[in-house]
Design a protein around this nucleic acid. Structure first.
Lengths: 222, 222
DNA sequence: GTCTATATATCGATAGAC
DNA sequence: GTCTATCGATATATAGAC
């Protein structure tokens, strides 16, 4: 379709066809992330998402079909970038530096996108009905390869013997705790919300715990 | 009321009056723990709880009034026993032994009552609407006293310097992970469900991490 | 105390006018 | 493409017979 007078009735004639779809889908996804994180999948309502997106409820179904399709689209985008961070665990990377960067990255994600972390936590908490097959399939396969790298470091004597699976479970649990429990943590610290120094304290403690366990502690805790 | 012929129409005449109430409330609470854990508060239905308890839906309202009252009763009983375990952190207890026992106890709770842990996690995850005031009040006060004990150990040189708040956050996150994420953990391990040795591996790793961080590692990892 | 029947509200999803 | 009106299902809660 050419951009001539025939397109004059289009709301934004200077954009390519479908531009409005892109904008509206982004608005809906942003609203959906908020509502799904606050309420959970089952309790989230399409009406609430529509209201927060500033669109009629029927538009959501026009763009995404069903509530489940909208949710899965959101869940996929969250998890896709999830494992990429783990790619810094390669056979020839420096163990201490790799764990340092990984933990800092995970805490930073908890600070910047707590809602994404909460959506994932809620999904797993209630049996991962939309995600179990991926978890048993591609997610596990990639996770196992990263664990193999850690096992290699152990065999080479670069780090103390450790079960990499459980080590990652502890790192994930600890770092994601600062997103998923971001109501409880400041409440127990007697604060209204978490400040940058709280995230820094968490990063340093978790890093120190991991490095000490692996015999990589360089001495001072900084 | 005497146990004479006048009581013959009672279903269980040998029990005291109100015994049936006790039995039915227990059945309802047990069913509610399952349904609330699987679905979350908002998505759990009184009909589902009634079905699992083997009682008509109206009986639940007769015994507990509203869905929220039933939920709060359940939440309170869960959290009440929660902090008691922390009482083994006293000024004159042995630090290494206290953390060893505490972590083992937390993992054992995750293994035996994963649903209780999930109900609590779901509550906090979605803003703790039924629990925030307790969290900012009595829970925090008691937590702070336990943190003061740890601070005392640091001043006396019994353990390496550490922020007790964040240390407990990491311990809670790691131990409760094996309940709240009990779908993900076996899936990533390539198992159908967690075996006793998995919980033992988790306990030993978390204990080792904490003791190493506090300078309490006795040498061999066992 | 127990349970059927139902009131009222809200859910996801869609038909159909524009 | 957009939005109003509405359908059928399901939610919490309760009235009232037993």
């Amino acid at each position: 379709m050419e951009l001539n007078d025939a397109t004059i009735r289009e709301p934004q004639p200077n954009r390519r066809p479908g531009a409005k779809r892109v904008v509206n889908e982004a608005r809906i996804l942003a609203a959906a992330e908020e509502v799904f994180a606050e309420a959970g999948y089952a309790a989230a309502s399409m009406a609430a998402i529509a209201e927060r997106a500033g669109l009629p409820k029927a538009n959501l179904h026009y763009y995404f079909g069903t509530k489940e399709q909208l949710y899965r689209r959101l869940l996929d985008t969250i998890v896709d970038g999830w494992q990429e961070t783990m790619d810094l665990f390669t056979a020839d990377s420096d163990p201490a530096e790799a764990f340092r960067l990984y933990i800092a990255d995970k805490i930073e994600f908890s600070r910047r996108r707590p809602r994404a972390s909460k959506i994932f936590a809620n999904e797993v908490l209630h049996g991962a009905p939309h995600f179990l097959s991926a978890l048993q399939g591609r997610i596990r396969e990639r996770f196992q390869r990263h664990c193999d790298v850690i096992d290699g470091w152990v065999r080479e004597g670069k780090i103390a013997p450790v079960d990499p699976h459980h080590l990652f479970f502890v790192i994930w649990a600890s770092t994601q705790h600062y997103a998923d429990f971001d109501i409880q943590v400041p409440a127990l610290l007697g604060k209204k919300s978490l400040a940058p120094e709280d995230y820094r304290a968490a990063t340093e403690l978790i890093t120190r715990m991991v490095l000490a366990t692996l015999g990589l502690e360089t001495g001072a805790t900084r």
